[in-house]
Design a protein around this nucleic acid. Structure first.
Lengths: 195, 195
DNA sequence: AGCGTAAATTTACAGCGTAAGCTGGCGGAG
DNA sequence: CTCCGCCAGCTTACGCTGTAAATTTACGCT
C-alpha cells in the first residue's frame, strides 16, 4: 500500500463502489442494500468504504447523480435522434422519460424518492438535476421562440414535467394500471390552453 | 386482565395506537419512528403492539388508510362546499388536494411513498385509495355527461391526477420552488384538447 | 533493517424489528 | 373459597443495521 491515497486511486475506488452499488440498488432497491453487503460485493471489509465516502447517504447521493446523468443522456439522445418540429422532439423526449422511469424503476425511485433535499442547486447533485431539467425545458424554449411569454412557457413546461413525473410515479406504485403513463403522454401531446 | 381480548378492546387499542403513530409520523416522518418509540408513547412495553398488529408494516398500512380517509374527506368537502359548475368544483377539489399534500407533507409521503403495493384493490387500503380516486373522477363524470367518450374522459382525469400528484411531489421534494403546484393547477384549469 | 504513517481491519456500541420464553393475575370449575 | 388453566403483557434474546474507536498491517523512506 502506497502511503498517501492518490486522488486518482480515490476516484477509482469511488467509481468502482458506485458501479457495484448502482446495480445492487437497481436490482433490490436502495433500502434493501446495506453497507456490509456493498463492502462484501467489493471484497473489502465493512468499514473500508468509509474511507472513501463520509456516510451511506453520501453513496446514495453519488449514485443518484449517476442516475440523473444516465437519465439526462437518454432524454438528450431521444431529442437529438428525432427529426421534425419541436413538438415531435418533445414527444420523443417524453417517451424516453417514461421508458427510463419504467425500465429503471428502482433507480428512478432513488433519484426522485422522498428526501429532505438539503442540497439546493450548488452541489453536483443540484447541477445534475438542473441539467435534466434543462433538457426538459427545450419545449418551453420553443414556445418562447414562438412568441409565448416566458413565465407562461415555463409554467407549461412545469405542467408537462409534473404530469410525466406523476404518471410514472403512480404507475410504478401500482396505483394506476400499466400503460397509463404512455396514455397520459399521448394526451399531453394534444393539449391547448384557453385565454 | 380479562382473559379474552374483546374485539372491541382490540379495536380500541388499535385506534389509540394509530392516533399516536399518526402524529409521530406527521411530525418526523414514518421512517424516523420506531416500534419502541410508539410503544413508549403509549406507555406499554416494546412488544405489546405486536399483539394488535402483525408487524410494523401493518401499522403503516393502517395509518395510510387513515390518511386516505382524511384526504378523501377534504376533497369531498371542498367539492360539496363549492358552488358553480363542474369545472369550478373540480378546481376547488384541486386546491384542496394541493393544500392537503403541502400541509400534511409526511402523511402524503406515507400515503403515496414508494411501496411495492402488494395490495391490489381488495383490502381496506385498496378501497380507501379507490374512494379517493372516485372523488377525483367527478370531473371525468361531468365530461362524460357532456358527451365526451368515457375512455377519453378517464384519460383526461388521469392526466389531471398525474399533474397534481407530480406537482405536489416535486414541490415537497424541494425540486420545484414553493408555489409551483398551485401554478400548475391554475394552468390545468385552462386546458383544452385538440382533434 | 527499522521506523513512521496511513490504509485496512477488527472490535464495539446503540439502535432496529421481532421471535421466544416468562410471569402475573383473572375467569371458570371443583 | 380454592385451585388451575390461560393468555395479555413483559422481559429477554437474536441477528441485523450504520458507524465510532481501537487495532493491525504493510508500504516508502531514512
Amino acid at each position: 500500500m502506497s502511503r498517501p491515497l492518490t486522488d486518482d486511486d480515490l476516484a477509482r475506488f469511488q467509481a468502482q463502489l458506485c458501479d457495484v452499488a448502482e446495480v445492487m440498488f437497481a436490482e433490490r432497491g436502495a433500502e434493501q442494500v446495506s453497507m456490509r453487503q456493498i463492502a462484501a460485493a467489493l471484497g473489502v471489509s465493512p468499514m473500508t468504504p468509509y474511507r472513501y465516502f463520509a456516510s451511506r447517504d453520501d453513496i446514495l447521493v453519488a449514485v443518484r447523480i449517476r442516475g440523473f446523468e444516465r437519465f439526462t443522456a437518454a432524454l438528450e439522445q431521444a431529442y437529438a435522434d428525432t427529426m421534425g418540429d419541436a413538438a415531435a422532439k418533445a414527444m420523443a423526449a417524453g417517451q424516453a422519460y417514461i421508458a427510463f422511469a419504467l425500465g429503471n424503476a428502482n433507480t428512478y425511485r432513488l433519484m426522485f424518492g422522498q428526501h429532505q433535499q438539503e442540497d439546493g442547486s450548488d452541489g453536483p447533485l443540484g447541477r445534475a438535476v438542473a441539467r435534466a431539467r434543462a433538457t426538459l425545458s427545450v419545449y418551453g424554449d420553443s414556445l418562447i421562440g414562438r412568441g409565448v411569454a416566458e413565465a407562461e412557457a415555463r409554467a407549461m413546461e412545469g405542467l408537462i414535467w409534473s404530469a410525466l413525473h406523476g404518471a410514472v410515479t403512480l404507475e410504478l406504485a401500482g396505483t394506476t394500471p400499466p400503460g397509463s403513463a404512455r396514455e397520459t403522454l399521448g394526451l399531453l401531446g394534444r393539449i391547448g390552453f384557453r385565454e
